[in-house]
Every structure is written in structure tokens, then in C-alpha cells.
Amino acid sequence: MIGIVAAVLAIIPFLGVVAFLLGPVAVILGIIGLRLKFRKRGTALAGLVLGVLALIIASIVITSIASGIKSATNPPAPSNPPVATSPAPETTVLTPNPLDNATPGQKNALRKAESYIEFQAFSRQGLVEQLEFNKFSPEDATWAVDHLTVDWRDQATRKAQSYLENQAFSRQGLIDQLVFNKFPAEDATWAVDHVTVDWNEQAAKKGKSYLENQAFSREGLIDQLVFNGFTRQQAEYAVTQAGL
């Protein structure tokens, strides 16, 4: 009877403590009943089993209740929402102006170089030498030329075009002329290959200018034009145009 009561109480929340008290009593009485010879063993065994069962159920129920109470009294800490981070401000790198620390001589040399380059084409070395001719020191002249905003290959092309406007040149003769004006051979070659020119017509103009000053045989004029850098084919075209 005690085992039945303990099992029932073990199921009911908050009465499991009573089941903890009655359960051991039912177990003890069941053991004693099994030992007595004149007691019904079935009843004693049932009391023993119910007593043990009451202890187990009461343990589970009480543990569940304790866990629920602990969860209710200690709620989980709220998770912190992600903090929006603003992008780092862009850093502006200030490039120092080279003119801020320039000497008066350097500034004047730069002004002179800019005026020259505005009206005619120069090589880098040719412009340095021109400034030195104007009595600027080599240091100031070099500093000024190196602080110009200029495309030296464009300068070589402009120089080549200006030569072609005034006199006739072969391709190689024009390259040699630009190198003489202090342009590097690579820039001179690039410039000559990027001008708009008909080399046959240049040979014809050169042949005509020779004939205006002296007499030539056909073969003699061909040799003279080849000496000036024209190809044999260009030279033959020129003398044919001249009527030789």
C-alpha cells in the first residue's frame, strides 16, 4: 500500500519529496515481507518494486522541476546586436610641390624652358644646352628641364616635321639629323617612322635641288642621292622625275 502511494505522489510535481520519504519505507517493508515466511510474497514484491519505481520517478520529476526553476531565474544573456561600423575615412596624401623648395635660379630656368618648348621642338639635352647658352648654370638648367611636363618623342616628331617642311631628307638622313640635335637614336627613329612622308617625293625634291646648283649625269645623281641615305629605288625614281 505504501509503495502505491509513493508511486502516485512521485508523479505529482512538488509532492515528489513525500515520495522520497515513502519510497524507502516501501522498499524496506517489501524486503521484510519477502523474508517473512507467513506473508504473501506477491504483495511484498509489489511493494518493493513500487517503492523503487517511486524513487526513480520522483528523482526524474524533481530534477526536471529544478532545471526549469534554474532556467527561469537565470535567463540567457541577450545577444548583443552587431554594431554597425562606419568605413574608415579616406586619407588624402598631399604630394609636395617641387617648386616650393626651388631656388630663384631654378624657377627662372623653368620659366625660360617653358617659353622655348612652347614655340619650337627640343630634345632634352638640346634644351639643357640652350639654357646654359642663356647663362643658366648646368644644375639649374638640368633641374628646369627635368621638371617640365613634356613628351620627348612628341618633341622629336615635331622637330622631324619642321625639317621636312623646309628641305628634303631621306629616312636615314632625317634620323641622323635628329640625333645631331641631341635626340636619342630610339626617339629619333620612332619620330621619323611616325611622320607622314613620301620618301620617293623627298628623293625627287633633293635631286631637283642638286640640279639647280650643278650638273649631274643620271648615274652621278643616283650615287649622290644614295650617299644622302636614299635607297637605290628612291634615287632612280628621283632622277627619272628630273628627266635624266
Rank of each mutant, 00 (worst) to 15 (best):
residue 157 T to Q: 14
residue 173 G to W: 01
residue 60 I to F: 13
residue 116 Y to W: 11
residue 76 P to K: 11
residue 38 F to K: 05
residue 118 E to H: 12
residue 233 Q to F: 12
residue 213 N to V: 06
residue 66 A to P: 10
residue 73 T to A: 13
residue 202 Q to G: 01
residue 219 E to V: 00
residue 162 S to M: 08
residue 122 F to N: 03
residue 182 K to H: 13
residue 155 Q to T: 02
residue 30 G to W: 01
residue 105 G to R: 06
residue 77 A to H: 11
residue 66 A to I: 14
residue 73 T to K: 13
residue 244 L to W: 06
residue 99 L to K: 12
residue 65 I to Q: 15
residue 93 V to A: 06
residue 50 L to C: 13
residue 82 P to S: 09
residue 26 A to M: 02
residue 189 T to N: 11
residue 168 A to V: 01
residue 167 Q to F: 03
residue 241 Q to K: 14
residue 109 A to H: 02
residue 120 Q to L: 12
residue 46 A to P: 08
residue 24 P to L: 05
residue 48 L to G: 00
residue 28 I to D: 05
residue 193 D to V: 06
residue 237 Y to Q: 08
residue 134 N to G: 10
residue 46 A to N: 13
residue 159 K to W: 09
residue 206 K to H: 07
residue 196 T to Q: 11
residue 233 Q to G: 09
residue 108 N to I: 08
residue 165 E to T: 04
residue 44 A to C: 07
residue 178 L to F: 05
residue 210 Y to S: 04
residue 170 S to I: 00
residue 27 V to T: 02
residue 98 P to R: 06
residue 198 D to C: 05
residue 186 E to G: 13
residue 167 Q to A: 06
residue 225 L to K: 03
residue 117 I to K: 13
residue 38 F to Y: 08
residue 177 Q to T: 00
residue 9 L to P: 06
residue 49 V to C: 04
residue 8 V to T: 08
residue 52 V to M: 03
residue 137 S to L: 03
residue 194 H to A: 06
residue 14 F to Y: 10
residue 45 L to E: 02
residue 200 N to V: 04
residue 39 R to S: 03
residue 212 E to G: 03
residue 134 N to H: 12
residue 181 N to D: 14
residue 109 A to I: 04
residue 153 R to K: 14
residue 98 P to V: 07
residue 195 V to N: 00
residue 145 V to K: 05
residue 212 E to Y: 02
residue 154 D to P: 00
residue 124 R to M: 12
residue 48 L to C: 01
residue 35 R to D: 00
residue 217 S to V: 06
residue 220 G to L: 02
residue 83 V to C: 10
residue 36 L to I: 03
residue 141 A to Q: 03
residue 193 D to S: 12
residue 149 T to A: 09
residue 147 H to P: 13
residue 187 D to N: 11
residue 184 P to C: 10
residue 129 E to V: 07
residue 176 D to S: 14
residue 23 G to H: 04
residue 12 I to H: 05
residue 174 L to R: 02
residue 70 K to G: 09
residue 115 S to D: 15
residue 153 R to M: 13
residue 233 Q to E: 15
residue 201 E to D: 14
residue 55 L to E: 09
residue 177 Q to I: 00
residue 8 V to I: 15
residue 219 E to A: 06
residue 23 G to S: 11
residue 41 R to C: 01
residue 137 S to F: 01
residue 171 R to F: 02
residue 115 S to W: 12
residue 228 N to Y: 01
residue 221 L to A: 01
residue 86 S to E: 11
residue 113 A to D: 05
residue 217 S to L: 04
residue 181 N to H: 09
residue 95 T to L: 07
residue 242 A to G: 07
residue 21 L to F: 15
residue 219 E to R: 05
residue 186 E to C: 14
